[in-house]
Design a protein around this nucleic acid. Sequence first.
RNA 1: GCCGGGAUGGCGGAAUGGUAGACGCGGCGGACUCAAAAUCCGCUGAGUGAAAGCUCGUGGGGGUUCGAGUCCCCCUCCCGGUACCA
Length: 917
Amino acid sequence: MLARSEMASYDFREIENRWQQTWADQGIYRVPNPGDPDFDDAKPKKYFLDMFPYPSGAGLHVGHPLGYIGTDIFSRYHRMNGANVLHPMGFDSFGLPAEQYAVETGIHPRITTEKNIENYTRQLQAFGFSYDWERSFATTDPDYYRWTQWIFLKLFDSWFDTGQQKARPMAELVEELEDGLRDADGVSWRNCAKEDRRAFIDSQRLAYIDEVPVNWCPALGTVLANEEVTAEGRSERGNHPVYRRPLRQWMLRITAYADRLIDELDLVDWPASVRTMQRNWIGRSEGANILFSISGNLHLRVFTTRPDTVYGATYMVVAPEHPILDEIIPEVWPDGTNPEWTLGIDDPRSAVGAYRLAASRKSELERQIEEREKTGVFTGAYATNPLTGDPVPIFVADYVLMGYGTGAIMAVPGQDERDWEFAEAFDLPIIRTVQPPLEFDGDAYTGPGPAINSGFLDGLDVEDAKDRIIRWLEINGHGEGTITYKLRDWLFSRQRYWGEPIPILHGPDGELVPVPEDDLPLRLPDVDDYRPNVSDDENADPTPTLSNADDDWKYVEIDGVRYERELNTMPQWAGSCWYYLRFADPHNEDELVAPEAEEYWMGGNGVDLYIGGVEHAVLHLLYVRFWHKVLNDLGYVSTKEPFGRLYNQGYILADAFQDSRGMYVPAEEVTTDGDRFLFEDDEVTRVYGKMGKSLKNSVNPDDIFEEYGVDTLRLYEMFMGPLDTSRPWSTRDIVGVYRFLQRLWRNFIDEDTGEVLVSEDPSQGDLQVLLHRTIEAVTNDMENLHFNTAVARLFEMNNALVALDKVPADVASVLPRLLGPLAPHISEELWHRMGMAGSVVTASWPTYDAALTAEDMATMIVQVNGKVRDRIEVPITITEDEAVAIALASERVLAHTDGVEPRKVIARLPNVLSLVV
RNA sequence: GCCGGGAUGGCGGAAUGGUAGACGCGGCGGACUCAAAAUCCGCUGAGUGAAAGCUCGUGGGGGUUCGAGUCCCCCUCCCGGUACCA
């Protein structure tokens, strides 16, 4: 019996540990930058990036690295094909969990974060990923967030030139104002007072302060971006109630880029679903603003996508929050007011007041539950339809939202279902202005058709009518064509601790002064208390955690003037908005990225492949694109889009179990007893979902490494199915790939003696053909990220070796290289045991001989009347006449043709011969 | 409701309009073994038949085609996104 160390069986643990150590010692994954001594600019560049993780305390489970394994394989494949591959990893480490932990324990988030990063790094390194760890960083590193703050200052110091559709430095705007090329909202610069000039400039910045209705979450003690609030009106993180209220906050002018964010999606190779989601989120609609006059000099401005239907506007609706309400409500109900319009209240002011109060109390959730039954109240005021001259009553109703368009609509029940419902409920007139088809029997008609009841528009189809009416509105001063967006500006300040401090000083007169670039990074101050000012009271004022900092930090004196620091921090999205740029030049102390490094690594299409979860389809990817475009406009990056190709990996799903109260129980402690599942002797029900902490169904990769090894886990996760689909985890199935690696090992190594079983002779015949076909197939699969089928091909190749005494020389040289990207450790070990030069990591990717992949014989299927009746081996050069002769001689074919001459012959030789009789 | 994406053996999945079910798991049978594990070999969509074979079969219904999992139309269900966006 041999001692363990001398045994020649597949000792994955020893092999994997040894090679990981060796690769690290050699720095084999280090990639030089342009200008470095060992940089080779003859090689093509590739930049493959994973969405970097938030390092949570729970560590990785086997679902997290699915995409990471994919990019690692792709990176290794391209490296073997001679590319300079930038393949980095870092950590998105600002965020709430570390801060909440600090609130509970008093431990500084930095300490928690560092510990978690250490654990994540250990786990990621255990996967054998080929990251260049020298480029790694965390968004919480002051050397990194220094540049996050720097970008913020650029946003602060820029404005959007709508003519040129790009951001420009503020100095250029001031220059144009001074030269009289522009004016400030209609006032010439020379005539502006100092304060007005400052206010104007501040109003033009891409980063600006505004009092806006925000999503205020008292339970988190902070405001949230629209994107962070769920459809149910709760916080995406923690599921707490969120309230709308006006607050002064930092905003980023992402709406200026709305059109470019839509149009430039054409430049990228992204999944159609993600591009659609972004377009929908931006929500561009073309239409018109129309002015309806109200008695006095008042006007009500509405936005509509259907200006062609204005003749059918029989009433109007404003949102409950609409400011015009205070000006238009009369003292008493007009004569003849329909009693159903008044809520039974004696005067309009009280009625509207009551409705507004009720609407403001209604949570988003309640609005959902009420199934959109139309409610509202008459304001007592009338406007005049500019086309018909008819008076139209103005209502308040919560089906019109203040946050979209102008917060007011002209209601055209004939062509709008919501308006139809409201009109029916309030007994309002309905006029069709588009002729529905004869067979139409619905209510509101929204389809195409000729205009009717519409004066000079009659007979025109919808598009022509829109054009005509917009022209009329513009000529007569009743409105204009316009475009609105669902996208709002990005609410950028948070009242939390664990984020980048916003580097702005507030002067005594409200002036905003940027912290000088040389003073960056503006470090987070220490505080005694990390608790946000959390409250159940939705009206409580937000108190930034940084207000707990010492006065030394909070106040700055410059030239005898006392400034107060901005106490808000940036949202977690900030750090991930530009990290891909920093990886190109992570240690640069003078610039966020050197132009040579940026142009080389981001050249062409930016990041060549960006893999991550589809949950970032809107939030992260929209914000990144916005920042990137600003940096591009200002000349700091060379491409319009950051990510040329995006790919969404699927998720790993797993069984989860709920007890009788619906609580999840740890899946790994659930036992089965025939048909039932038991947890601590109680029956639990099986459900199914995304692997993770919330379902308590995580599988720890450390456990899999222990039992089967890294290569097995990597291979298994790829073999389960296509990278972009979700798949159920099945620990039982892992053994299949494990057996493959064992079999591979035994094909190459004699388990008793350790002898390398490789022949000096190359393969011949069928085996040689198989080898070259395998190279061809695996190469294609690698290019297309079809790693599941690549693994299957390697299984087949390996199975063909089992019966041989020795592996033919050419197969032995090729197989570890084909497997190398997928299972690098065993491949490297076999490579070295065979005495091959260098490392399989840097070996060249094998090529195939096309002459060998094409066979000289083929299996021809013979169909009679569309059904396969025989399969005949034929030379690939067979002619149609020969094929028909051979087919008609076949007994199996004869049995179905009854000897009749075929009426028709379709030949796709040498594979198909289809006979019709 | 609207917009995406799906549905293939017991399970995960594979199939440029051309042999449906590659590869793996599981299952069944065999070899080896005192035995077990491991390993190796064979079988494994359903029905029918002694067999050759025949029939059916890719969610359901129709269509195009010599030929459809694949293309077209309608429907069902599942997953994701979104939702009074004027």
